[in-house]
Nucleic acid binder design. Structure first.
Lengths: 191, 191, 191, 191
DNA sequence: TATGAATGAGAGTTCATTCAT
DNA sequence: TATGAATGAACTCTCATTCAT
């Protein structure tokens, strides 16, 4: 019962942050939802901000680790990016609260809070950039394609899909759109 | 003298919000930068939130009005979208503080604050969607292109360009990338 | 009514600190006794500690300024010290709450808080030391008298009188004992 | 093993209280320094305050017991007081941490905490007062000497020596000054 | 209109103490 | 005896907003 307190607090935090937003959420709300005392939270997390950063980083780590493993084995850059699109959307579709927190708080935290999440974004972009460069070397993607801009288009398109899914009350299937997004972006990359 | 104050307060708000983030910014910071008393702000704005919403909405109105005018006269959907990409990036490149506020606060305000900005987003998307449908009707864009997804890709790509420009300390020319983004997205739309 | 808020808060602080001790006293107690809102205190003082330090320093400044003026005009070192004993005890007898705060909190603040009060103690000791050295030079005090030890005896004797007066519930006249203390200490200094 | 823990906790408490002050010190700091669990402290002491009071009282008991024994055998009141001055300063010089706690916390505890330490002070003063009265009866001390005031001078002088030794970073030999202090005070008492 | 001193609700965090193991 | 995870009361300080001038 005590071993899972860490996870219960983290889940409660994501849930409360998703519902009210990080700033409006009170630590006592998180405690209540986790069914622990306010003070207990501070046995596991230094402060409210670390609660947010840990939630974001944990999810990001899991995603990146999976993405690296899966993409590493793939030969075609186009397939890599298509697979990444699926992973991206499915990972967030799986846990709506977490997706809400990501979409609503990540930018702010990247600018005003700890640099962890920023580092993660850089990692993610590294993966995308590598695939794009590979594609250009293999002659699959246009040689005039500008790497960073292309990576931003790829990420931005997926990110916006998640954002509109999160802001939309209708819970359509987010995973289903990966293919369509990949179609557009990859067509835009190709020769 | 009073019309002047309204604008000074709004400019100060954008500047302070960009610097510290909406939540960390104090109303008294805004007052100080606008060189008015704290109380004066409340003669022009109901509360801190309205300060943010007005800043966002004013800029959005100006942008939408210009976009509508320019795009209305254009015959080709592809040219419309290409032009919109330029307008989008140039509008934000023009005022970096405003861009910071947009990129950092718009999502949160869309979810947790007043629905004004949300309406604006719908307007913007309406413009994009119309162009996409037009393109499909004219046989320029793929018939299997899913409208909303395509619109999200278009907006998301541009939005991400702005975000990375804002988070990046290096002040490269944002306007210059509009063409490259449009190349990718429009290629992805075409038959 | 607003101009005297500073003084009202300071008086309330001394009164509350005397009653419950600095640590047990709540800022809201001070606010209540001063008949201001909690937040008002922070318009005049940076924090609870500054409230204490200001009370101590203000009283100390007034005392030192008076002591310097009076003693400066006196020719005899013995008379100086005798007069200082009177000033010391009378100053604290005049305001019992302040005396309580001095006797109970000054040592702690000298060690654990800001160094202001420490500086004041050094000033006071400087005055005593000067008189002692003067007395030795004039051949009135024993040549083997060790300056610092003598100064500590002088101050310690007076300080202990105040402490026992403060801890004692019976409010005997503190000022009356100055003469007796001076008799003992000065006799101890003399040839 | 348990008798050992009691003492370890007490020593740790004195050490931590000396370092940070009673109020700023955390019970968990004491536990850590004593190398016991937080809860263990409460098997030996009712609460944090009792930790302080026990430390003070234990040291005081040892001192008083020794003082009584030594002074009881002495015929001359002057010698008694001179010996007491030595005992006082040497006892505290022996254990600097304990001296710090005594000088910084004793007054507060006398006023705001349990009355134990106050009783001890009364005991100590009783010893001094007895010697003074004896000296007057024997015609050694001035007949106009006011007992309580004289006792306060004696104690205050010694106490201030300890305080300045404690606040001073330079660790000069405290015991050495007993003679000089006794010289001054006893000279002040004599006919 | 304009001011800015005053307000007071509100929230994050600490830490002495407890108690199940 | 011993542990240390858990508790939750308590308190300082901040800051959006008001209102008398």
């Amino acid at each position: 019962m005590s071993g899972d307190k860490y996870q219960r607090i983290l889940d409660a935090a994501v849930s409360v942050f998703a519902e009210r937003g990080f700033h409006a959420a009170r630590v006592s709300d998180v405690a209540e939802r986790a069914e622990v005392a306010d003070g207990t939270i501070y046995l596991y997390f230094r402060n409210k901000e670390e609660l947010l950063m840990t939630a974001i980083n944990t999810a990001f780590d899991a995603f990146m680790s999976r993405a690296r493993t899966e993409l590493g084995a793939m030969p075609s850059p186009a397939h890599k990016l298509r697979r990444l699109a699926h992973l991206h959307l499915e990972a967030l579709a799986e846990n709506r609260d977490l997706a809400v927190v990501f979409q609503m708080e990540l930018r702010q935290s990247a600018r005003f809070l700890a640099p962890f999440s920023s580092d993660h974004m850089v990692e993610y972009f590294g993966l995308v950039l590598a695939a794009i460069r590979e594609g250009k070397e293999q002659g699959i993607f246009r040689p005039d394609l500008r790497d960073k801009i292309a990576a931003n288009c790829f990420f931005g398109a997926l990110d916006e899909m998640v954002t509109s899914w999160v802001l939309d009350d209708s819970h359509y299937q987010l995973g289903d759109v990966a293919e369509s997004v990949a179609d557009i972006i990859l067509l835009g990359f190709q020769k």
